[in-house]
């Protein structure tokens, strides 16, 4: 079996296990009520970290590329109209592509 298929099958299995781990660890017990606020903050924290890593992380170093300007432009679109998800994504790609075309 090739390296690619080994990776695909192993990741499929581990992803199922990782997704199942939450309920299997908690086993129906109620979480301490103090954690409710922590859970509410997990969303903003995970999302920001994902954006930072996807946008600025490259091969173990911080890389600033045209995509940063593209995503900032998407942010401006979203500030102007918060429900314009598709527009924001198209603007992000277009600004990034435009800047790269200009060199």
């Amino acid at each position: 079996m090739s390296a690619g298929w080994i990776t695909i099958l192993a990741l499929a299995l581990t992803t199922v296990l990782v997704r199942a781990s939450g309920p299997l660890l908690v086993r129906g017990r109620p979480l301490p009520p103090q954690l409710a606020g922590v859970i509410d903050m997990l969303g903003p924290a995970v999302l920001t970290a994902l954006i930072v890593v996807e946008l600025l992380g490259g091969d173990g170093r911080i890389v600033v590329s045209a995509a940063l300007a593209g995503v900032l432009a998407a942010g401006v679109v979203l500030l102007w109209r918060r429900n314009a998800l598709l527009t924001a994504i198209v603007v992000a790609a277009a600004v990034t592509a435009g800047l790269r075309a200009l060199g």
Partner: peptide, 11 residues
């Protein structure tokens, strides 16, 4: 510019 799509989605 496809590499800007994923982070823009999460933004």
């Amino acid at each position: 510019g496809l590499d800007a799509v994923f982070p823009a989605f999460f933004l």
